[in-house]
Structures are given as structure tokens and as C-alpha cells.
């Protein structure tokens, strides 16, 4: 008795290695025939689909658990059941009468708010089953139900009466924008060119949008979803990055800083109590704003080229002032003038 005989034929005892091989064979075999039977999901099977699935599964389990059963015969049995079931489904496409026999028909359980008791009992459903389903659909009152139908796949569909249906955008005459089916245009840091092409937007457009979100490289993006209206949702790997900000913000902060310093100086220079209060209060407010803006600047980008260095402006100003001061003859006059205006 060779090892392969152990795997394929009926033998009195079987080694663990042969069991594993039998399992792998039946697994692949089942996979092939389930695919052949179609894509229907388990939750959406007709009763008969369920019966076929269980039977085929049981047949597949036998050769693995019972050494005295040969492997070949169950494989044939699985093929026979699967093909028969496939034949039933295909035949249903050609003969509707056969479809009704094989798959069953939808049964109306409630019509115009009235229970159809005969259909209910013929479907072996209790009132509790029906009410439970209605409650799950948010229609607990029978009078609100226009139709309730037991579908061939075992689920109950419920339709509310027109008066109790939620208003749609059309009812309210609200404009509705067609957003289409959103698709991913970037996934795991890579542009999905096929999807981008289908969306009708160009790569340049996408890159521009990313730039506006302060993203320089596609590889920073985990996923970007685009709908037909051109609305782009971007999720990046690093969610903790600071919010994108204007390139002109550092210059603005510098200007605000100067304004705060000037106001402080005005407050010191003035003799007028009311004016001093005004200057101090304004300076404080400006510093408040600065405090809110400045933490956003504490990132590596602060030193990026093209950003105005605040000290440059200050130096330039100082230079201008000292130059002014050193114009001969001019300084005393200006100084006197300043004093006269002051106070």
C-alpha cells in the first residue's frame, strides 16, 4: 500500500500526512466548484442554495475524517451536486416556471396595511417574526405599511405608505448635485492612474489640490477619494502634521510683532492717561493674536526658502533710522519738532 493509495483510495487506516493531503485536495476542489456555482453570498441564499451548500460540505468532510472512504468518490459527488445546482440556476434563466419551482416566489404578507394571514401561515411565519422584521425596518405600526413581501431569499422587504415616507430632496424641491460613485485616486501613497483617468481629472489637477493641502509628495497620502463633483478627501499617513497655512503668514506675524512693539512705545511716550490705556489695550490684543498664530510657525518649514525673515525687515528699518539721524543739521530740527508735538 503506497502513500498515494492511502490518499486517494479506501484504506483501513490512514496516516496524518495523508489526512492533510486529503484536506488540501477537497479544499481546492470545493473552491473550484463554489466559484463555478456563482457569486451569491451566503446571507442571500435561497433555502435550496443552503441545502446544496450543506450537503456538498458534508460530502467534502467525509474523506478527511473517515479513512475507509475513498477520496475520489466524494470528489465526484461534489462535482455532481454542484453541476446539478448550476444546471438548476441556468435552467431558471430560460424557463420562469422552473425558476419559481426551484427558487420559490415572493410572497406578499401585508398589503395596504392589511395582514394576509393565509400567506403568512403558508410561509410558516408567525406574527412575531413579521413584527420583529417590521420593527427592525423602523415601521412598528401595521397601518404604516403599504407592502411587506417575503422574498425568495428569506428576507422581508417593507414599504411604507407614501404619507409616512421620509421626504426626499425631490419632494422638497432641493437642488441635488450628482456626486457619482466616489473612487480612490490615491491609495497607499500611489496614484491610481486608471481611476484618475475615469474621473476626468488630470494628474496636474490632483497634484495642485495636494499642494493646496500642503502635501508635496504623493507618498505622504494614505488615501485620496474623489467624487464626480470634484470634491477630494485626503487622508495622510501623518495625521498630526500642523494644519496647512499661508506662505505669507511669517511676514504677517512679523508685522504684528512690530505693531505691538510700536504700540508699547506709544504707551510709554504719551502723557495722556486715556491714550496710554488705549495703546496698552491694543498692544495686548495684538500680542494675543500673535500667541495664537505663533505656535503654528514652530515647524521645520519656518526656515524654508522664500519666507520673509522678520529680522531682515527690522535691520533695514534700523539702518534707515540711523542714516536719517546722521544727516547733518537735520537731526536737531526733527528733534525739536518731535518735542513740540509731544505731550
Amino acid at each position: 500500500m503506497t502513500f498515494w493509495q492511502e490518499v486517494f483510495y479506501s484504506v483501513p487506516a490512514i496516516s496524518p500526512a495523508a489526512v492533510i493531503l486529503r484536506g488540501l485536495f477537497t479544499y481546492v476542489w470545493l473552491l473550484a466548484f463554489v466559484r463555478l456555482m456563482g457569486q451569491r453570498e451566503l446571507g442571500r441564499l435561497t433555502v435550496f442554495d443552503g441545502v446544496v451548500a450543506i450537503t456538498v460540505g458534508t460530502i467534502a468532510a467525509f474523506p478527511v475524517t473517515q479513512p475507509q472512504v475513498s477520496l475520489l468518490m466524494p470528489l465526484l459527488g461534489i462535482a455532481a451536486w454542484s453541476l446539478a445546482h448550476l444546471g438548476t440556476s441556468v435552467a431558471g434563466n430560460y424557463w420562469p416556471a422552473w425558476r419559481r419551482v426551484a427558487a420559490g416566489e415572493p410572497v406578499v404578507l401585508v398589503k395596504d396595511g392589511k395582514l394576509l394571514e393565509e400567506n403568512l401561515s403558508a410561509s410558516r411565519l408567525t406574527m412575531d417574526d413579521l413584527m420583529s422584521e417590521l420593527r427592525l425596518r423602523g415601521v412598528p405600526r401595521l397601518q404604516d405599511v403599504e407592502f411587506a413581501v417575503l422574498e425568495p431569499r428569506g428576507r422581508i422587504s417593507v414599504f411604507r405608505r407614501a404619507e409616512t415616507q421620509p421626504a426626499s430632496r425631490a419632494d422638497l424641491k432641493l437642488p441635488a448635485e450628482h456626486t457619482g460613485l466616489p473612487t480612490f485616486v490615491i491609495l497607499d501613497g500611489r496614484i491610481l492612474y486608471d481611476n484618475l483617468k475615469d474621473s476626468g481629472f488630470s494628474e496636474a489637477w490632483l497634484k495642485d489640490r495636494l499642494r493646496r493641502e500642503n502635501i508635496k509628495d504623493v507618498r505622504e497620502v494614505k488615501a485620496a477619494q474623489l467624487d464626480a463633483a470634484g470634491s477630494l478627501y485626503v487622508d495622510r499617513y501623518d495625521d498630526d502634521l500642523p494644519a496647512p497655512r499661508s506662505r505669507r503668514e511669517p511676514a504677517l506675524v512679523a508685522r504684528l510683532k512690530r505693531a505691538a512693539a510700536e504700540l508699547q512705545q506709544f504707551a510709554l511716550d504719551t502723557q495722556d492717561q486715556g491714550a496710554r490705556k488705549t495703546y496698552t489695550a491694543t498692544a495686548r490684543q495684538v500680542r494675543d493674536v500673535l500667541e495664537r498664530l505663533e505656535p503654528r510657525l514652530e515647524t521645520p518649514e519656518q526656515t524654508a526658502a522664500g519666507w520673509l525673515d522678520p529680522t531682515v525687515e527690522q535691520k533695514r528699518e534700523q539702518g534707515a533710522q540711523s542714516a536719517e539721524r546722521w544727516v547733518p543739521g537735520d537731526r536737531p530740527r526733527r528733534h525739536r519738532g518731535g518735542r513740540k508735538r509731544g505731550g
Partner: peptide, 10 residues
């Protein structure tokens, strides 16, 4: 009191 123009500039 500072020069009015300075305040205006600020």
C-alpha cells in the same frame, strides 16, 4: 504723545 503720523502708520 507720539507723532500722529506714527500712530496712523501703525
Amino acid at each position: 504723545m507720539p507723532v500722529g503720523s506714527k500712530v496712523k502708520q501703525c
